[in-house]
Design a protein around this nucleic acid. Sequence first.
DNA 1: GTCTATACAATGATAGAC
DNA 2: GTCTATCATTGTATAGAC
Lengths: 220, 220
Amino acid sequence: MSDPSTKPNTHPASEAGAKLRIFQAAEALVSEQGFDAVSTRDIVAKAGVNIAAVNYHYGTKHRLLLEIFRVRATELNRERSQLLRVAMEERPGDARAILHALVEPATLWISDERRVALRFLNRARSEGPLEVRETIRTDVRHLRRFVDALALALPAMPREDLLWRFHFALGVLHYNQSADYERLSILSDGTCAPDDRVALLRRLVDFIAGGFGLPPAAAS
Amino acid sequence: MSDPSTKPNTHPASEAGAKLRIFQAAEALVSEQGFDAVSTRDIVAKAGVNIAAVNYHYGTKHRLLLEIFRVRATELNRERSQLLRVAMEERPGDARAILHALVEPATLWISDERRVALRFLNRARSEGPLEVRETIRTDVRHLRRFVDALALALPAMPREDLLWRFHFALGVLHYNQSADYERLSILSDGTCAPDDRVALLRRLVDFIAGGFGLPPAAAS
DNA sequence: GTCTATACAATGATAGAC
DNA sequence: GTCTATCATTGTATAGAC
């Protein structure tokens, strides 16, 4: 599996390998315009390669998009795992800290250079080809760690209860990730916007923690 | 706007009008196979009409799908509004009852003859064409009633707080609606399944109410 | 007004030459 | 590895029969 993120833009795009250029062009175009609006011909035009290069390097258009998704999702999940590890060491048994580790990475990416990657991930969840949505559904390894951690922190909660609440929490998280705040903006007459990442993170964790029956956070 | 639901299957499909047959064929195929997998030719084949009939009656494939979405979403929102009205009369000021009215209709449709319509709505939210997702984002009239009701029931909560929490609640609701319980099933080793509608409804309302800072429901 | 046959441009994919 | 040429399929549009 290629990992373009480890060597991004060290060379001008025109000098980078064709495979990497296709990866970057596809990610950029899709994150801007969406999956449906971007054709294979658009991608190869931006990448400066021939139409058949996609087939040669990635097999099909869908497999190219799946590869991009895998790379970026892996990066996001790695950040989550690291934060979870820290939380388990520094604040063992603190369910709220676990939820924080789950939520924080995505909110950080919003105003990063990883904004493009986040937008791609968000679009992939909703618009992406079947292979991508299939992968999302069935690849749950990275989530088990969080379930196990929560079970340790909340020993009194029946496991079935905990799993359902975790399921609902993912709903909040992904709806948030969908970057579709337009509806909220309209509902609030422009008052509510996700510009303040710190406040957004706090609101997210507050809501999910409440769903788990945890008391509100102490004012810091 | 046609409303096929008011006269469903009163005639054999082969005798119904072409426009209605196209509507029903498209809804059934999409709810089974998804938006991407169903072509215009699949639809007209099942409906027993010519390829050009879609263009004649609905303009484009996307507009056909948008029409189906509008009809079914209107039905769902009408049920929600009725439940909200009842809740406001019988249990005024009870925020939990308001959330219940928001959540219940979709859970009822799961095992109805409206299962097909619900599956279509769920798919439309994630896979549907841009026009559909645009409509979802911008058409918030039916939600304002719920926001206003919650504001009355929770006068101490700042409006910005309330709107954010409502936004998160919609995330839970739509993730639930996505009928994508496969991930939860895998995570729970098959333990958690949405078969018990009553329990699912209770869990949903419990989680969302907790997110709003409401105390757990009294055991009934 | 309704419906059908046909045609069209654009798409994802592939075979085979170099 | 890269390219040109070509393929079947897609959504859509048009002309004309009933």
